[in-house]
Design a protein around this nucleic acid. Structure first.
Length: 389
DNA sequence: GATCCACGGGAATACACGGATG
DNA sequence: CATCCGTGTATTCCCGTGGATC
């Protein structure tokens, strides 16, 4: 908590500190600036990028590892820092005999979940390097590509990291290969994916693959303790509790942080000061059927997110069929049939599941009940928090 | 005015069941 | 008894529209 925040609390007479002192710092979708225990991975990435520090472009690369292993945290943070390098312009290096000038390539991180179409991808890349505004509409994909090429002509180049390649709601692998074919030769890329090198066509185009292992149990405990000490009231979490969460999460930091967050919500809502074992077990029980990371849900268009927010508000009886769920969802700016279509689309992409309903129906095609497949409680809280802040 | 992409709405189609028909 | 058909519900898919730009 920074000074500004502390003063704000006092001026608002919140003298009694809450259990959760900072939602952002324990949020499973926020990444720490200093990823815990990922030094070796950072070094491997910097090795891979070595040519860039001498002013040229490295070969294409591939980073892979299981979900929740910190790939996004490390790569996005690293790229953010690298983009601070003086690029295109001149960096002076003083040696004993003379002054050398160096130019570095630029660095851009692209989240494939948010740039999944050809148009969106080229636009995102161009937007990150162009000096002036890039239109969101009214311009052809090919025009965008040409502008991108013009923009990079004669420059030291560009190194893009493209995250979540090959996931269902992100850039498809074969599409990606076509996309990067359209880029000028002074661009190289690092694809980040869950698939092993032998399971993807991408590695035919890459010079190097870097593997990320799932977190070891003890590291995950450290991460939880760190997050808890940053975002929760003092001494909020005891080591055995963190160990329990870590044991259950099996190396998946996203899942572990969801449990921490969900449990902290309960303590905070009840105005308590400590975790009880039941907080952890209850949240774990609710997480049992979650397979979709929150990052996927928060990458959806705003109107899909608001439909999901309403959906998780409903009780199981209101989710007995797609139709009843549609009727129960209140959306002033969308028609009923659109809400319904959204639900089918979300089911198609696996974010929610349709399962044959257990209620007996005499007439018509049997309905299917609707079940969220993401951490619903945590999503709801973070969503509401975003709306108000 | 022509062109571009994204979005939303509803039409069209698929499916399940029960009763009718031969 | 096997098949057809009507009805009601579930699901998919396409096309018009709109905002933006050139």
């Amino acid at each position: 908590m920074d000074i500004e925040e502390r003063i704000k609390r006092r001026t608002q007479n919140e003298t009694q500190p809450r259990f959760i002192t900072d939602y952002q710092l324990i949020s499973p979708v926020a990444h720490a600036n200093e990823p815990v225990a990922r030094g070796p991975l950072l070094e491997q990435l910097l090795d891979f990028l070595e040519p860039a520090f001498n002013g040229s472009i490295p070969p294409n690369g591939y980073v892979y590892g299981p979900t929740g292993s910190g790939k996004t945290a490390v790569v996005s943070t690293l790229w953010d820092n690298l983009d601070q390098l003086p690029s295109g312009s001149v960096a002076t290096i003083h040696t004993s005999t003379r002054v050398q000038t160096k130019t570095f390539p630029r660095f851009t991180y692209i989240d494939g979940r948010q740039a999944s179409s050809t148009f969106a991808f080229y636009r995102a890349v161009l937007d990150s390097i162009a000096a002036d505004q890039v239109p969101k509409h009214g311009i052809g994909t090919e025009t965008l590509r040409e502008r991108l090429t013009e923009n990079l002509e004669g420059s030291p180049g560009l190194i893009i990291s493209v995250d979540h390649v090959g996931e269902s709601l992100s850039i498809d692998e074969t599409e990606f290969i076509d996309l990067v074919r359209g880029l000028p030769t002074n661009v190289s890329w690092l694809a980040v994916s869950r698939k092993r090198p032998n399971e993807t066509p991408l590695t035919e185009y890459t010079g190097k693959s870097i593997s990320v292992d799932r977190y070891r149990k003890q590291i995950l405990v450290d991460i939880l303790m760190q997050r808890a000490s940053d975002g929760l009231a003092n001494q909020a979490i005891r080591h055995p509790i963190a160990a329990d969460i870590s044991q259950w999460a099996d190396g998946n930091a996203h899942d572990a942080l969801c449990v921490l967050f969900g449990a902290a919500m309960r303590v905070d809502d009840a105005n308590r000061a400590q975790f009880a074992d039941t907080d952890i077990t209850a949240v774990i029980k609710n997480m049992r059927h979650s397979r979709v990371p929150l990052g996927v849900v928060f990458s959806l268009p705003k109107n899909r997110q608001s439909v999901l927010r309403e959906l998780v508000r409903l009780g199981p009886d209101q989710r007995q069929s797609v139709s009843t769920a549609t009727n129960a969802i209140e959306q002033s700016d969308l028609s009923e049939s659109t809400v319904k279509r959204f639900l089918y689309e979300l089911a198609e992409s696996g974010i929610i599941e349709r399962k044959e309903s257990d209620t007996t129906h005499s007439k018509g095609r049997p309905p299917s009940k609707v079940i969220p497949r993401f951490p619903a409680e945590v999503f709801a809280r973070l969503y509401d928090f975003q709306q108000t802040s």
